[in-house]
């Protein structure tokens, strides 16, 4: 059976992601060390916390994550986990994993209520295995104040509109990321995690 290693880098609700991944038939391991990550069949970087604070926790495993990314290990970043794939963030100083070029930016607070909290729709920009059987306009659950702004438009899998249009999912080779929370997105979310499970066993 395929296993996903959930990297625990501090505060946050790992239980819901763990439970949701297990509903897809995957087993899960919660990891805190470099050694745990080295062994991983697949890695999930979960969602809650502050960009700069998370970088400290991520520093000891940064190289390992780069190696795993290059080796082709499926990696799924959720919310902040996705934001950490990029170079910098308006949330605070520090260099992210920089798997992709681009900055993490603040949603506009003058035109909409921030955080963007609730169910919003996906506008699909390119086909990806992660979103198999997910149709245009599917509702998923968001809780965030920042969004990733990739320099390379070809990695964008979906966009969502809230005050402005922003990237809500990315997919590039073995690297996947969602700004929304599949573990909190009901049936649609479970489908996305099932797709990730399929990618792992492939």
């Amino acid at each position: 059976m395929a296993n996903t290693t959930i990297f625990d880098y501090g505060a946050g609700n790992l239980l819901s992601l763990k439970t949701a991944l297990e509903k897809t038939g995957l087993t899960t391991t919660i990891a805190t060390t470099k050694e745990d990550l080295t062994q991983a069949d697949a890695i999930a970087l979960p969602g809650v916390g502050n960009f700069t604070a998370s970088l400290e926790k991520l520093a000891p495993v940064k190289e390992t994550l780069h190696t795993k990314a290059k080796e082709g290990t499926p990696i799924l970043g959720i919310c902040l986990g996705l934001q950490l794939f990029f170079q910098t963030s308006q949330e605070g100083p520090g260099e992210g994993l920089a798997l992709f070029k681009g900055e993490v930016k603040q949603l506009p607070t003058t035109t909409v209520k921030v955080p963007h909290m609730g169910w919003n729709t996906l506008n699909i920009k390119k086909p990806t295995e992660l979103l198999e059987d997910i149709t245009e306009g599917t509702y998923v659950y968001f809780v965030h104040s920042l969004y990733p702004n990739p320099e390379d438009p070809t990695i964008v899998a979906t966009q969502t509109h809230y005050g402005q249009t922003f990237t809500s999912a990315i997919a590039q080779k073995n690297i996947y990321g969602t700004q929304f929370h599949p573990e909190k997105s009901g049936e649609a979310g479970i489908q996305i995690l099932k797709n990730f499970a399929k990618i792992i066993v492939r």
Binding site: N13, L15, S16, T19, K184, G186, G189
Partner: peptide, 30 residues
Amino acid sequence: VAKTINIPFTVGGGIRSVSDARLILCSGAD
């Protein structure tokens, strides 16, 4: 509840400190 559903949920009642909240959030509340 966290194991049963995968939509967000809030828990209230008797939360008076960060440690009270941590207990609830680490049990799976959002």
